[in-house]
Design a protein around this nucleic acid. Structure first.
Lengths: 225, 225
DNA sequence: AATGCCGATCTTGTATGGAAGTGCGCCGGC
DNA sequence: GCCGGCGCACTTCCATACAAGATCGGCATT
């Protein structure tokens, strides 16, 4: 593998290592169950063990690594229970968000959302599922912003990486078409200022993740606990 | 101040430092805005800088410290916005929880809750607000367990420390009597298997925190951003 | 007196060596 | 052949030294 020079330009080496490792983990360059060591990664990036160690600590707190003191450090396997509970948390919050947005609708809210969906269709037609994923995330974050709780979304983000790993495994599988259709239903309910319908649409939208999870577990059993 | 010998017996020194510092911060031994340094704390506990540094990193990720690279490390001031959004998250989740519990009631569920409330009344009568706080937390965690999402509560816990700092400042102020009365309403709704009433009672219960927050901000303005 | 430079002295960041614990495989005894 | 003890190799953990940026005050210059 290339030395991967840590191109990005954060302030400290430790932060760059964090970003590099997190990216490697989410994109399955480092697979769940892989054993890594400080000196291993340090050598790979051409830095000393110290910043690597600090990166390990950060990633362990984010639930991506498991540090077994004096033994080893492994890329954490994905916990189905954890993923479901993360989904529970996300659903709880997003339902509350969509209720608020639909409850006190502003005219331009719907406009912004419609435009986002148009972009998503463009990405979908172009077959760029990576970009679609980004836009999908932006869609949900925008809803949080419209509800006045953008900061809350940031908190979700921390616990969303488990979901992201699953999502990455299903990149080509998931139907962007259907996701877009569901997004449209949500926006429609918002435009009609119908919180109940919005909630229903949102729950249906998020429920699809459960199917993907089960599919992924049987496709990659080694990656799960 | 005493050297505080780090009595507890976690595996590594770094973990002990984390526990000691977190306790100091939540109990306001280290006040928001206080400037600390690695060598300062290291000397205070008689350890080297290294484990202290790692403790700083962990606490910074938990939002209790702010590391300003090459400058200093300060005890983070409490962010009113952050607290409100933490409350929003908690309310979203707890509402979802209480709906589930009230929606699929088991007979012994109410029993367990009633018993917990009895303990709370005992603690309240004894004027032991510290113990009451513990029991209050147990009450909510028990609800999460009954809903089958105990793990989710653990995630809340991480983002609840901001609230805990506020709560500590209001230890003698908050009315345990009223909290108990509200708990009773919640349990009553659960016993009747009335999710809507349970949700209403829960929202009312959590809403009181807003008043406490505002009160605390005017009492200790220096502790907030 | 006001201002800008400059260095002493803080801080955190990084590197490196060794301590302590764990696991695994070899080797000897049975 | 089987089993137990022992030591080597590996890990993370801690201590220490040094590097580099940031801050603040004194001091010279204007």
């Amino acid at each position: 593998m290339a030395p991967a020079a840590l191109e990005n330009t954060k302030e400290t080496i430790a932060m760059r290592v964090v970003d590099a490792l997190r990216d490697d983990i989410i994109t399955m360059g480092l697979k769940p169950g892989d054993v890594i060591s400080e000196s291993d990664i340090a050598g790979r990036y051409g830095v000393s063990r110290q910043p690597v160690r600090e990166a390990f600590i950060r990633l362990a707190q984010q639930g991506l690594l498991l540090i077994r003191p004096k033994r080893a450090t492994v890329v954490k396997k994905i916990s189905p229970v954890g993923v479901r509970q993360s989904r529970f948390i996300r659903e709880s919050i997003e339902v509350e968000i969509i209720r608020r947005v639909a409850g006190q609708p502003s005219d331009d809210a719907a406009d912004v959302l419609v435009k986002l969906i148009a972009d998503q269709e463009a990405a979908s037609d172009a077959g760029d599922s990576r970009r679609f994923h980004t836009l999908d995330e932006l869609f949900h974050r925008t809803l949080a912003r419209l509800a006045g709780v953008e900061y809350a979304w940031q908190l979700i983000d921390d616990h969303k990486m488990q979901l992201d790993r699953v999502r990455y495994l299903t990149l080509g599988v998931s139907s962007t078409q259907r996701a877009i259709a569901e997004h449209k239903q949500i926006v429609e309910a918002v435009a009609k200022a119908d919180p109940t319908a919005a909630e229903t649409a949102m729950r249906a939208h998020l429920a699809r993740a459960e199917l993907l999870l089960n599919q992924t577990i049987s496709d990659f059993p080694d990656y799960f606990e």
